[in-house]
């Protein structure tokens, strides 16, 4: 009996030839997804599993020595580490406010672009600039603007508006990072929201105008419900990215304002002696925390 590749794929001659067509189809399905499963397994499951293992060990500096099993010691240390809790708090504040900021600003700008106008293609390109520009360049521009001794923003806020006492390093405030991230990521929200904004039928607004609804009512009763899902999706994506953020905050404020991402890095690689098992434990808690938040969000807010 000849065993062609086709026969083999379809499970003929390899498995029981008395299988029903449905069973054969199922088998074929598994065979077809096997490569993807292996690839995902190797690239995703292995690092995560290895990280979980590392979080229960103490890793010696000398790479020739193997990690030493310490059980839950890293997690116990973590719970009573005030710096960890500070990082958690900072992360939540940063995640929430820069998410709300970027989404709201993106929505506002997208609404300005609802109707096409002369040159709106170029304007749209300009709006995307903060998102496209290399992070390293804009982070340094912002740092320069916010320089405590000669930056223009500290001068305005401290000496002109007297919002806070001079001498405070504005670069060290979480508020500035939130502002920076709002500015940097609103174009992303803008892009997704704009596509939806432009697909809202104009007739709905016209019907509402005839019905006597004002601008605010039209926004509340037509625009917002139509954008509900895209806003929720943008908020979710920004939440995930902000929660895991590292480079933006690191380039901007370094270790002056610890968030979970930078905290992991500092503990794992930037302290003497480095404590990589501890860092792995923090990273695991981040995954679990984020997972719980996302599941809860999707379940209660998104209704997908």
């Amino acid at each position: 009996m000849s065993t062609s590749f086709r026969d083999w794929i379809a499970g003929r001659s390899v498995f029981d030839r008395d299988m029903t067509i449905k069973q054969k189809e199922m088998l074929l399905g598994y065979v077809l997804i096997l490569p993807s499963v292996l690839l995902v397994g190797a690239s995703l499951v292995y690092p995560v599993a290895y990280n979980i293992y590392l979080s229960f060990t103490e890793i010696p500096v000398d790479p020739t020595q193997s990690p030493e099993w310490v059980g839950l010691a890293n997690y116990q240390a973590l719970v009573s580490d005030p710096e960890f809790w500070e990082a958690v708090q900072n992360t939540l504040i940063f995640t929430f406010f820069s998410d709300v900021g970027a989404t709201a600003l993106g929505l506002g700008v997208a609404l300005l672009f609802r109707n096409k106008f002369r040159g709106d293609g170029i304007m749209r390109g300009l709006v995307l600039l903060p998102y496209i520009a290399p992070l390293i360049a804009i982070a340094f521009t912002w740092r320069w603007l916010l320089q405590p001794t000669y930056g223009i923003v500290p001068h305005l806020l401290q000496d002109v508006l007297e919002l806070y006492p001079s001498g405070t390093n504005i670069r060290e405030t979480l508020g500035m990072v939130i502002l920076f991230d709002t500015w940097r990521y609103f174009p992303f929200a803008f892009l997704l929201i704009l596509a939806r904004v432009r697909s809202i039928p104009n007739e709905l607004y016209e019907a509402a105008k005839i019905d006597g609804a004002g601008r605010v009512a039209r926004f509340k009763d037509i625009t917002l419900p139509e954008l509900k899902f895209v806003l929720a999706a943008v908020f979710l994506l920004r939440w995930i990215w902000n929660f895991n953020v590292f480079s933006d905050v690191w380039l901007f404020v370094g270790n002056n304002v610890p968030i979970l991402g930078t905290f992991v890095y500092v503990r794992g690689f930037n302290t003497i002696p480095p404590n990589q098992g501890y860092a792995a434990a923090v990273a695991n808690l981040m995954v679990i925390g984020l997972f719980v938040m996302v599941i809860g969000y999707v379940k209660y807010f998104l209704d997908w």
Binding site: P201, L204, E206, I210, D211, A213, D221, I222, P225
Partner: peptide, 28 residues
Amino acid sequence: PAERNVAMVFQNYALYPSMTGRENMAYG
């Protein structure tokens, strides 16, 4: 439009998607 006391039916109905039939009708 609202000051003219006219009502209009659109080709594609233009019902407010987030509202029930009752809310649509009561909106004006």
